[in-house]
């Protein structure tokens, strides 16, 4: 796929959560890789396993909540799933950093922004008070906060949602991580602020060369900044392609459904009554391990008998585009 060695390579990852009524399969047999400097998006609806994937990269899913049951996550020659606790802690925040959807709950409400930033700098870099303060100012400047010095004295509640997300991004960038995982980074933000943050993320990537793994439910955000996309459904990867290919030539019926379901801006004609949206009927199945076959079969227009018997293998459409579907073109 790429001449460069991948920065991180996930192979056959399987994650289960311990539900009340038994184990729930959150991620099943997921493989993908992220190259240095690229932005890969994982897109899907709630419960598709995209956040579970992100969290298991940092080994944040631990018993009793759930666990990674198999596969490997190769990063810098090591399998993250095999690391000791202390070794893993060195990876977290230093080589792989993460930003979350709700920046308010990820910041400590009783400490100033400056305190939280400089402390993180000092923990990792063992720098003096003054050096870490300067580094904090530099970082806030980098993420485009106006008047960084006075921001340092503020508490999280004094900042708006967009500014808090910028602080979170600054904090994630402290150690110049080679991979930044962004879990729904703009979902809690308004459109105009979302535009600011997306703009910031792509600028930062150009400047620092960090790879970004973007977790989102919004195909619009994917179109804005991702180079490649993985579409997930019920814990499975159903399609993987470059962003252009995916939007030009979506193969999986679910991907097509997603694209058709969102209302299209500018589709309104003056004095024409609105058409119905194309909906995907039904709901996502519960993955308690009983389901064999394709989890989308029940909602799929192109369903064949074999879809209910086994999960389809990946089929290459082009060198960079593969789809897991027996019948993408709707033959009967």
């Amino acid at each position: 796929m790429n001449a460069l060695l991948p920065l991180i390579e996930v192979k056959n990852l399987k994650v289960t959560f311990h539900g009340r009524t038994g184990p729930v399969l959150a991620v099943d047999d997921l493989s993908f890789q992220v190259s240095p400097g690229e932005t890969l998006a994982i897109v899907g609806e709630s419960g598709c396993g995209k956040s579970a994937t992100a969290m298991s990269l940092l080994r944040l899913i631990q018993p009793p909540i759930g666990r990674s049951e198999g596969g490997s996550i190769l990063f810098g020659g090591k399998d993250l799933l095999q690391l000791e606790y202390e070794e893993m802690r060195a990876v977290r925040g230093r080589e792989i950093a993460m930003i979350f959807q709700e920046p308010m709950s990820s910041l400590n409400p009783v400490l100033t922004i400056g305190r939280q930033l400089t402390e993180t700098v000092r923990v990792h870099a063992d720098a003096s008070q003054e050096t870490s303060r300067l580094r904090a100012i530099e970082l806030l400047h980098l993420v485009g906060l106006p008047d960084p010095e006075s921001q340092l004295r503020k508490y999280p509640y004094e900042l708006s949602g967009g500014m808090r997300q910028r602080v979170m991004i600054a904090m994630a960038l402290i150690n110049k991580p080679s991979l930044l995982i962004a879990d729904e980074p703009t979902t809690a933000l308004d459109v105009t602020i979302q535009a600011q943050v997306l703009d910031l993320l792509s600028k930062l990537q150009e400047e620092t060369g960090t790879s970004i793994l973007l977790i989102t439910h919004d195909l619009g955000v994917v179109a804005e900044i991702a180079k490649r996309v993985i579409v997930m459904y019920a814990g499975r990867k159903v399609e993987e392609a470059t962003t252009i290919e995916l939007f030009d030539n979506p193969q999986h019926p679910y991907t097509r459904g997603l694209m058709a379901a969102g209302p299209r801006l500018g589709s309104a004609m003056a004095d024409v009554k609105k058409a119905r949206l194309r909906e995907i009927s039904g709901t996502v199945p519960i993955m308690n391990g009983e389901l064999v076959g394709c989890p989308f079969a029940e909602r799929c227009e192109n369903v064949l008998d074999q879809c209910r018997l086994a999960f389809p293998q990946d089929t290459q459409v082009t060198e960079t585009h593969c789809v897991a579907c027996f019948n993408p073109n709707g033959a009967t």
């Binding site: 105009t192 979302q194 619009g220 179109a223 252009i244 939007f247 030009d248 299209r264």
Partner: peptide, 13 residues
């Protein structure tokens, strides 16, 4: 600004 901030429908747009 609102209209322009809506994410695009297609990456090449």
């Amino acid at each position: 600004a609102l209209v322009s901030a809506v994410p695009r429908r297609h990456p090449s747009q």
